[in-house]
Design a protein around this nucleic acid. Structure first.
Length: 318
DNA sequence: AGGATTTGACCAGT
DNA sequence: ACTGGTCAAATCCT
């Protein structure tokens, strides 16, 4: 299966599909502020709805491409499409640990365990330490392979917290860790808070989730590909209907152009469409809450909003 | 048999 | 002293 995954042609096609998704995302993101003023201008509303329709069509096509070329079947239990929101964690405490070299060097006795935590942090914290939080109903399906290394009852919570590190920690020295905590809320399905520490450096063949680390340059597409359809579906109608004054994001009010990280200092109000990696590093968020509000205020939006949410969540697993 | 998980203990920070 | 994070022996699973 790994062979199919690595086939250059398939990889190219797939990369293009992913790029398409990223392109759509970027487009929606740029025009997102229009949704905030939809109630003031019917033309804006129409534009936004048209954009969303095109985006959904493009996303559907791109998704088809990705599904066709998916090298291996989904996990035995295909994760349900669920809501997932990522927020930047406020401040990483002392993320991860990789003191195993020391521990492994002296694996004998347990009692005189003089492992130095400071030395552990020296090794990790100085490098590319990062932390972010993901609220999801499928905390164990994020595209990476994890090994559980601990479980703890946390004060003030009803459920234990499980600790995971990257399966390839030893092989590749990957320092990525996460812990999963089920929220106390009696929602159905249950919601889990997943806190990630450190990005994966293992490059273990798992997909880096879309929208992240993808340069949003105009894609170079070969003829007769579904990706072309996706690109056309998104861009042609858009470019034809969009007034010149609205084609450039710079025409938007400055307050609407702030990237995700700068949009707000609050860690709770800044949310991203699902994606385990810290999408806020490079991409502003697509604020689903605002889209939800738009859905409430305008008939027809709700369906688009729902579909878009589902689609975006679907991409999480590719 | 070897890898993954469980679980009680250890450690550092507050 | 308390707590969250991690370790590692014991146990489970394939």
């Amino acid at each position: 299966m790994a062979a199919a995954w690595c086939m250059p042609a398939a990889a190219d096609e797939r990369e293009r599909a992913v790029a398409e998704v990223a392109q759509v995302y970027e487009r929606i993101k740029i025009q997102q502020p229009l949704l905030q003023v939809h109630h003031h201008s019917s033309s804006h509303q129409q534009l936004a709805q048209s954009l969303l329709s095109d985006a959904l069509r493009a996303l559907n096509v791109a998704l088809s491409v990705m599904k066709q070329q998916r090298p291996s079947p989904a996990p035995a239990t295909t994760p349900p499409i669920t809501s997932s929101v990522v927020v930047k964690a406020e401040s990483p405490r002392s993320p991860s640990a990789s003191a195993d070299s020391e521990a492994i060097a002296n694996p004998t006795e347990r009692r005189p365990k003089k492992r130095s935590r400071s030395s552990v942090m020296e090794g990790n914290n100085k490098t590319s330490s990062s932390s972010w939080v993901d609220f999801t109903t499928v905390p164990y399906e994020d595209g990476y392979e994890w090994r559980k290394y601990g479980e703890k009852k946390i004060n003030g919570t009803s459920y234990t917290r499980s600790y995971f590190r990257c399966t390839y920690k030893d092989d590749a020295g990957c320092l990525a860790t996460k812990h999963v905590q089920q929220k106390d809320s009696s929602s159905d399905p249950p919601v889990f808070q997943v806190t990630y520490n450190n990005k994966h450096t293992c490059n273990n063949g798992k997909l880096i989730l879309p929208f992240m680390n993808i340069k949003l340059e105009p894609p170079v597409l070969p003829p007769n590909t579904l990706a072309v359809q996706a690109y056309s579906a998104l861009h042609d109608p858009f470019d034809q209907t969009m007034p010149p004054s609205q084609q450039e994001p710079s025409s938007l009010p400055v307050s609407m152009q702030q990237p995700c990280g700068a949009a707000t200092s609050s860690t709770t109000t800044s949310s991203c469409i699902s994606g385990a990696e810290s999408c806020c590093d490079e991409f502003p968020v697509l604020d689903m809450a605002q889209m939800a509000a738009a859905a409430e205020a305008s008939p027809g939006y709700d369906l688009l909003y729902e579909e878009l949410s589902l689609l975006c969540d679907s991409f999480k697993f590719y």
